[in-house]
Design a protein around this nucleic acid. Structure first.
Lengths: 161, 161
DNA sequence: ATAGTTGCAAAAGCTTTGCAGTATG
DNA sequence: CATACTGCAAAGCTTTTGCAACTAT
């Protein structure tokens, strides 16, 4: 199956999942909501609400900020989108269906975000949840540091002194 | 040594550390900055900028929000205070000197925050940093779920149906 | 003396809300 | 056809900034 076909499959699946969620929760299936879902799943990695809003305007969809925020909330609630706070006061979002669980490492200089996986986190999550009697639904692990290219930039600055 | 004496010791130590930081970075040692440092170290756990500001006003310190924010930034930079984003759009802070490294588990119902430690996180941090060539400075691991008492509340709601 | 800090208030930036009109079930 | 949803603009909150007064060095 080609990558293109895979993407079409995923799109179809998330549409179905979203429909199921909306029906189950007595919410209407509006064209705006499906447009937003699709734009997110056609797009790449991480984005914020404003970026998504501008992106939709550029594509000539007349969808307001209010609807973008409203729909993002629904998508987070339906587990199709994940919300992150990478230390700024602006939430970042990411499609989550069809992606394996992962965490993030963030460059504190250039704000680049890289993903990584480590199975031990699941174990920690399970163990800590049991000890403290929490029913854990999700987690967020962010590592912060300086990426390779920013390390080089910094050492050049040092040399210049 | 009594707890009271321990706290006095810690206060003295953080004041010295803060002084060292300010001197090293050519910043002035103002009374406002030390007042804020002390209030944070006399206070308990987690707080946000506004809480701290109100707390200071209540104690008849005439310190502005601007100074609170400015000083919090210095304290974070000097590693005496840690900044968190627990999913809301408001940063939370916490004193960090004299406390062993820990992470947080947050109840998504009542927003209660509990601390926990797991040495494996340090290992993950070191390993991932090496693989991805990041110089890691810090991390943030948050587990989200439902705490014991909120689990009971939820099951009572179910029963009521 | 003089540049960094402060308090105040205004501004900025992200997100939510109120309202009148629209479209879904 | 009832009412949830939408777009728009205004309001709400947290955080930042501009400025005149102040003060640590």
């Amino acid at each position: 199956m080609s990558d293109n076909e895979k993407q079409k499959n995923i799109l179809q699946e998330v549409r179905q999942l979203f429909t199921a969620y909306l029906e189950k929760n007595g919410q209407r299936r509006t064209s705006e909501r499906y447009t937003i879902l699709e734009e997110i799943y056609l797009r790449s990695d991480h984005f914020d609400a404003e970026e998504l809003y501008v992106h939709l305007r550029n594509r000539n969809f007349n969808i307001s900020r209010a609807t973008v925020y409203n729909t993002l909330e629904l998508l987070v609630a339906s587990d199709l989108v994940t919300k992150h706070q990478f230390g700024k006061n602006q939430a970042q979002f990411e499609k989550s269906y069809g992606y394996k669980q992962h965490d993030h490492i963030i460059c504190i200089d250039c704000r680049k975000v890289v993903e990584f996986c480590d199975p031990r986190i699941q174990q920690i999550q399970a163990m800590v949840g049991e000890i403290l009697n929490f029913k854990i639904t999700h987690h967020s692990l962010n590592l912060y540091g300086i990426c390779g290219s920013c390390q080089i930039k910094r050492s050049k600055k040092e040399d210049a002194k």
